[in-house]
Every structure is written in structure tokens, then in C-alpha cells.
Simulated assay, not measured.
Amino acid sequence: MGNDNAYWDWRDEQLKAGERAKGGEPCQVCGEPVPARAHWKHRDRHVCSPRCNLTLNRRFNRRIERGEITRPPVFSPDPQGARPARAFRTLPAGSLFPYEIQGYSPKPGDVVERHGSVIAVHRAVDLPDYAIPWQVRPHSGSSWQLEHVALSVHTQTGAAFYYLTDHTWTPTSLILGAFLGLKPLDDTFGPFEAEGGTWRWYTEIIRDVDETDQEYTWTAFVCGKESVPRLWTPAYAARSERLQRVSRATGSYAARMRELGLEATVERLDPLAVYERDGWICQICKTAVERERAWPDMWCATLDHRIPLTAGGEHTLLNVQLAHWICNLHKGDYFPVDL
């Protein structure tokens, strides 16, 4: 679905604050010291916490929106319309995910179909002058050019949604939800009556990951009978679950080693990946571990350290293995001499 690894590499490089912080350096957001045990990406950016990292990201996004920073294209823009048009459809019932998406957003020439409702994306500069509302035209005090204005047109009713984009045709901000002569039911960009039904514009936001496991967000302005909430693709949900497992396991073993007064490597690793590597076979008793069993079942899956932490072992991929919880407890701090 996505194809944007270069963008994320570029973004990480832009947010770096020089040498990686070792601990004690001032946070570039709030000024508090950066902890020595902070996430490596936070230390690269010289921020002290996830909250400050989020603030830094938001500031960076606003600079992109204001045009102070130009980001590399996700898909090569084609202002002449030579790029083949793409159609993003509603997938059949029973599909893993209900909608087709690709990249950050639909581009001019693309069509988005959602449950029978169709919108087509156009460039404002391709419209005749009489079809461009005055609110959309650049005027005194406006910061955009008409070349960077796109619109989604609802093919069933003719309603249009005008928005500002960057040079990749990715939406950055709303300009006007114009109904082109259609009467809205209230003073907002909310529901309106047309073609014997009630329609509404909504922002479709979908989180996904690309082939390199980097996350990105699809954004499209869609008109339909019902609005769609923010969605995660199965790939994005699986990535989130994996990152949560990694964080829980890393934090748990780091805390345990601090309690023991030990200084050793704590590698970020996914316990489930270790279980899959070992084929769901306990590496102590050599019998199968049932995936369905969960803690505190004595026969559930656990991570066992081949060389125990108390004997100088480290929490690394090479030093961990799958074991039943009861086998792990019986083994304790023992380990074979040949290791």
C-alpha cells in the first residue's frame, strides 16, 4: 500500500539535534534533562519524553504546512496529468480491510469509491474561471497559490470540497466545503440534501505501514451517506501490537536488572518472534508449548535466558529462548556448563 521509506529517513534526519544525547542534555522542547535511558530516537532528537517528542513532531508538521520545509514526494507528482489515474474502491465483504488506499492521499485524476458513493480529485487550475468560488481564489492575506489547490467532487451530487495541498498533492488544510448551489442543512460543512438523499462530507483517515514497516497516514475528503471513523489496517494493528510487546518486555527486564544492580545489554526484541523462531517448542523440556495458554497458566510461554541474568547473561536475541513457565521456574539460575 505505501511506498515512503525515503520520507521517514529524511524526517528522522531533519529532527536530529546533533550528536545522540548521553544523558543530562537539555530537552529542546521543555529544557528538562534528557534521561540517559530514554529511547534512542528521543536521544537523537534531544527530547526528554514521548510528550515532548509529540510536540516536536507537531511543530515540524506545522513548518511543512507553512511551506518552511519542503518534504520529498511520496509518489512523483504529475501536474500535467500524464500519470495513470488510480481508483480506490470499497473491497468485497469478508476482505481483511474494507478499503483500497495508497500513499498519503488520492492525487488529481484519481477516483475514490466508498459504498457506491464516488468522488473524483481535480486540480483547481484545471477548472474554468467561473467554476472557482471566490473564497478559493488567492486574495490579499492568503498564503497559497491556486496551483496547490485541489478539490474532491462528488459525482452523484456535484458537491465539491476544496483544500490546500503541498507539492505532492497531499492535503494540508481545508479552504472551503462548497456545495455548488446545493443547500446544506445547517451553516457548517455538514449534511446536505440532494438526489433524494442526505449526504455529508467527512475526512477519511487510515493508518497503514509500508513494505519497510514504516507507518504513514492516508487522508481523503469523501462524501457519503455515513461518515467513517479513523481506521487502522491489519498491518498497522499488528505493528502496534508488536511494538507494545517489545516495549513491555524491554521495560520489564530493564527494571529487573536495575533491581538486581546489574549493568548489561537489554535488547529490544519481540517475545512472539522468539517463540516463532523456536517453533513453539520448550527449549528446556523439548515438548510443545500451546499458544492459547496465557499467564498465569503454569504451561504458558515465557522467555528464558540461557545464561541467567544473575550469572552475567544479557537480554539479547542470542541469549533468550522459549520455555514453559514451570520449566523456567524449575531451571532457576542453573545453566549448562557448555554455555
Rank of each mutant, 00 (worst) to 15 (best):
A159G: 05
Y130Q: 14
D166H: 07
S143E: 12
Y163N: 06
L164N: 10
T168L: 03
T168F: 11
A124K: 08
S140E: 14
S152M: 02
D126G: 12
Y163G: 06
H139R: 12
A160W: 00
R123I: 05
Q135F: 06
W169I: 04
P128Y: 10
Q145H: 12
D129Q: 14
V153P: 03
I132C: 10
Y162R: 05
T157P: 02
Y163S: 04
L164S: 11
S142P: 04
T157S: 02
Y163F: 15
Q135C: 06
H154D: 01
D166M: 02
A159C: 06
S140F: 08
T157K: 00
W144C: 01
H148M: 08
L146S: 01
A160Q: 10
P133S: 09
H167I: 05
I132E: 10
G141L: 05
Y130E: 15
P133V: 09
H139V: 04
Y130R: 14
D126F: 08
W169N: 15
L164D: 02
S152E: 01
S143D: 15
H148C: 11
A160M: 12
D166P: 02
A160I: 00
D129G: 14
W169D: 15
R123A: 08
V153R: 13
H154N: 09
A150I: 07
P133N: 11
A150N: 14
V149W: 06
S140A: 10
A159V: 01
W169E: 15
L151K: 03
S142D: 04
D129P: 08
W134R: 14
P133A: 12
P133G: 09
S152I: 04
P138D: 06
A124F: 03
S142L: 02
S152L: 02
P138Y: 07
A131I: 00
W134G: 11
L164R: 15
D166A: 11
W134Y: 10
V125F: 08
H139T: 06
E147T: 13
H154E: 01
W144S: 01
Y163M: 03
H148R: 14
A150Y: 02
R123S: 12
S140V: 12
V136C: 07
V136P: 05
P128C: 06
W134D: 13
A124R: 00
F161C: 08
Q156P: 11
T168D: 15
S140H: 11
V136F: 04
I132M: 10
A124D: 04
Y163P: 05
Y162Q: 02
S143P: 03
A124C: 15
P128I: 07
L164A: 10
W134N: 12
A159W: 00
Y163L: 06
Y163T: 08
H139L: 03
E147I: 07
Y163K: 09
R123H: 12
V149C: 11
A124V: 12
Q135T: 11
W134H: 14
L151C: 13
A131F: 06
G141I: 08
V136T: 05
H154L: 02
H148Y: 13
P133Q: 13
L164C: 10
E147P: 01
H167A: 13
G141A: 05
V153D: 09
T168G: 15
Q156C: 12
V153H: 07
S152H: 06
L146H: 01
